[in-house]
Design a protein around this nucleic acid. Sequence first.
DNA 1: GACAAATACTATCTGTTAACTAGGATTTTA
DNA 2: TAAAATCCTAGTTAACAGATAGTATTTGTC
Lengths: 167, 167
Amino acid sequence: MHISSRGRYGTRAMLALAMHYDKGLLSAQQIASRQNISQRYLDNLLKVLKNARLVNSERGRRGGYILSLPPTEINLHDVLSALEDGLDIVHCTKNGRVCGRSGSCCTQEIWCRIRHTVESILWQTSLADLVARQTELDNKIERYVRTSRSADCDSDNGVGPGPGSSI
Amino acid sequence: MHISSRGRYGTRAMLALAMHYDKGLLSAQQIASRQNISQRYLDNLLKVLKNARLVNSERGRRGGYILSLPPTEINLHDVLSALEDGLDIVHCTKNGRVCGRSGSCCTQEIWCRIRHTVESILWQTSLADLVARQTELDNKIERYVRTSRSADCDSDNGVGPGPGSSI
DNA sequence: GACAAATACTATCTGTTAACTAGGATTTTA
DNA sequence: TAAAATCCTAGTTAACAGATAGTATTTGTC
């Protein structure tokens, strides 16, 4: 059980777009370099996000991407369910299959409870929330730029992905 | 993002063992037939659960498996982290890799929050809780055996897996 | 002691998916 | 017209989930 790097990269891309929202278009190249994502790979993600109508794009020179709605109006559930094709945490409805055990098996209830809990966190978190938090973090880093930094939780390989890497 | 069938099958196996706890050993065959799991596959899971010291086994005729602790003393986090090799929901620490972005990226905080929330549900749910709930469900079904049943959430294919099936 | 029933062990297979890559076509601006 | 961007359709590779196979070993019962 994990959150795919596809989802994580896509979320970071959306964060970059959210932080740039009032400054207009942002090119895929800029997103990729800001977030350390292979641009080729990012292309695919942006395409998916565009099909899900979460971003708009303009082609040609000076083109780029922009959120289709203000950051307050897009939440992480929107983003992840677009990228992860349904976010089916329980992984049983994928082909419309329903268990004969439905309603008679208590383990199911737990999976559903987990699903609902995760989904509610995602629903409740908007891109604007992320922007606010990121701004806060950036300021903090600027203030304490010379002190050692550590995090209480693990994360992506920030260097990557780059060619050949697989997180 | 989903809960693997490995985790779900293993949990169901543990539930079966928990329901049988005071009656002694339960053979893999019996677990498989009670929970509709391919016995060969179940073998592997039970081996993992045994290595994690969650179950004890006795070989030979009349052998079988039994929980190593009472159902109140085993929670779902124990079970799933044994089966899913660490339960690393964020999927970044797998090879000890830590992101250069740690502490400077707000999306991380969300993944961590989700992780902690899920883990706390799992910690808080013991096998004894599942047994109690399952008993309740069984009684309910017995009472309303003629009425149609429906569930509010989806689940496994109860027929399977069986040979050739892949959920 | 033979047999049956059970776990234990090691290995293999197969299909799917995640993650990433490639090469170009098209559009627009400078 | 050239550069910079998106758009499109694939292809590749490695890992993994899920399942299977065969056999060795242990133990109870007749």
